[in-house]
Design a protein around this nucleic acid. Structure first.
Lengths: 226, 226
DNA sequence: ACTGTTCGTTACAGGCTCTAACAGGAGCAT
DNA sequence: ATGCTCCTGTTAGAGCCTGTAACGAACAGT
C-alpha cells in the first residue's frame, strides 16, 4: 500500500495513449480536409501513421466515436476562438464585441471549413448528432453569444408571441443564464443569420456567383448588430 | 423508309428505361430519408426493386450520377414549389409574395429535410457540387426570388461598396435579370437568412432547445421582408 | 527474473462500388 | 415468320471499407 504507488510510471501508458489518440485525430483532420467526412477511413489513417488498420481500434471504439471526438474538439475550439475574438474588445463597447464575435465566428469557419461542416453540416451516417456530450460542448459558444448580447441590452421592437416567450425563458434558464426571452430570441436569430452566411460561403455559393464573400459579410454586419 | 418507322415501338425501350430510372430514383429517395446520403446503397436499391445489384448500372453510370440526378430533381422541385407558393398571391402585393416565397421555401425544406440537406448540406463524398447542370438547376429558384424582389422595389438603405456593386451587377447580368445591384444583394441576404433558419431547424437545433421552429420563423419573417 | 496487461500484427467475415464475361429475350427489318 | 442485333439481367470477382478474433511480442510493476 504505497503512498504514491508509482505515479509517474502508472501514467506512462496513459500518456502514450493520449498522444496516439491525438495523432490519430490530427491525421483524421487531414483526411477530413481532403476527402470530406465520408472519405475519412480508419485504414487510411493507419497507413498514414505507419500502423496497420485495426490497431487503431485499441484507441477508438469505432469510426463514429472518432468522428464524435472530432466534433467535440471542434466545438471547443470554436468557443475558444470566439472567446479570444471578444476579449480583444473591452466590454464597455458591447456592439463592437458583437461584431468581433461575428467576425470571429466567420473567420474560424472559413479557415477550417471541413470542421465547420462537421459541426453543422450533416447528421453524418447514422449517428444521433444530439448525444449528451455534443449538446454540452455546443453550449459554450452559445453562452458566449448570449453574454455579449446581454451586455448589449435589449432593443427588440416587436413583442414576442406568448408560447415563444415561455419556451425561450425555459431554455435560457436551462442554459444557466438570465432568462430574458428577448435576448434569447436575438441570439438565435443572429446565430442563424451568421450560420446562413457562413455556410453558403463555405459551400462556395457566393464564389460561384463571382461575388466576394468578404463584401457580402461586411455589408450584412451592421444589420446583424443593429 | 417508313414514314413513321415504328414510332410507338421505337420508344418502347426508352419508355422502359425511363420508368426504371424513375423507380430507382424513388427507391433512392426512400433510402435517403432513412439512412441519409451516406447510407444510400446501389445494392440495397436493387434488392428493394427485386433486382440484383449491378443491374442498376445499366441505368446509372455510378452512384454519384444517381445522387446528382436526385440533386437536380430536388432543385427543380423546390423551384416549382416556390412558383406555386407565390402564384397564390397577386403580384400587386409584392411583400405578401415575398412572405409566401419564404414560407414556401421553409415548408418545402421541412417537409423533405433529406432532400434539402442533399441540396445545401454536404459536398458529398468527393464530387464537385458545381457541375454545370447543378448550377443551372439551382438558378431557377434564385430567379424567382429575384423577380419577387424586383417587384417589391429597392429599399436598401446603406450604400454598397464599389467592388460589391460591380460584382453584383455582373452576376445579375449573367442571370439574365435586370442588373440592379441592390436587389441582388437583398436576394442574397434573404436567401442566406432563410437558409440559416431552415438548416438549423432541420438539423434539430431548435428542437433540442425546446423551442418551436414555427414561432422562431414567424418571429423573423417581418424582419426578413421589411 | 516473473507475471499480467496492453499493443500491434495478421486473418477473416460481411458490406460496399463497380467491371467483366456470359445467357436470355426483346425489338426490328426483312 | 424468321434472323439479327442490341439490350437486359445474371453471376464472379477485384478492391475498398469497418470491425472482430486470435495470436505474438513488448512493457510496467512486483
Amino acid at each position: 500500500m504505497p503512498g504514491l504507488p508509482a505515479p509517474k510510471a502508472a501514467r506512462m501508458r496513459d500518456r502514450y495513449r493520449a498522444q496516439v489518440r491525438a495523432e490519430v485525430k490530427q491525421a483524421a483532420l487531414g483526411q477530413l480536409a481532403e476527402s470530406g467526412p465520408a472519405g475519412l477511413s480508419v485504414s487510411a489513417i493507419g497507413k498514414e501513421l505507419g500502423v496497420s488498420g485495426p490497431a487503431l481500434y485499441r484507441y477508438f471504439a469505432s469510426r463514429d466515436e472518432l468522428l464524435t471526438e472530432l466534433v467535440i474538439d471542434a466545438y471547443n475550439d470554436l468557443a475558444d476562438a470566439l472567446q479570444v475574438a471578444i476579449s480583444d474588445v473591452p466590454s464597455q463597447e458591447p456592439r463592437a464585441r458583437l461584431e468581433a464575435l461575428a467576425r470571429g465566428y466567420r473567420s474560424w469557419a472559413v479557415a477550417q471549413p471541413h470542421r465547420y461542416r462537421l459541426l453543422f453540416g450533416p447528421p453524418m451516417p447514422g449517428y444521433d448528432a444530439h448525444a449528451r456530450r455534443l449538446v454540452e460542448a455546443s453550449q459554450a459558444a452559445m453562452n458566449l453569444l448570449l453574454s455579449v448580447l446581454r451586455d448589449l441590452g435589449n432593443n427588440t421592437s416587436a413583442p414576442l408571441s406568448e408560447p415563444l416567450a415561455t419556451q425561450l425563458a425555459a431554455w435560457a434558464q436551462a442554459s444557466a443564464l438570465d432568462g430574458d426571452p428577448a435576448v434569447g430570441l436575438r441570439a438565435i436569430l443572429i446565430w442563424s443569420a451568421l450560420h446562413g452566411l457562413v455556410s453558403l460561403e463555405i459551400a462556395g455559393n457566393f464564389a460561384s456567383m463571382g461575388i466576394d464573400p468578404d463584401e457580402v459579410f461586411e455589408a450584412q454586419l451592421p444589420a446583424l448588430t443593429a
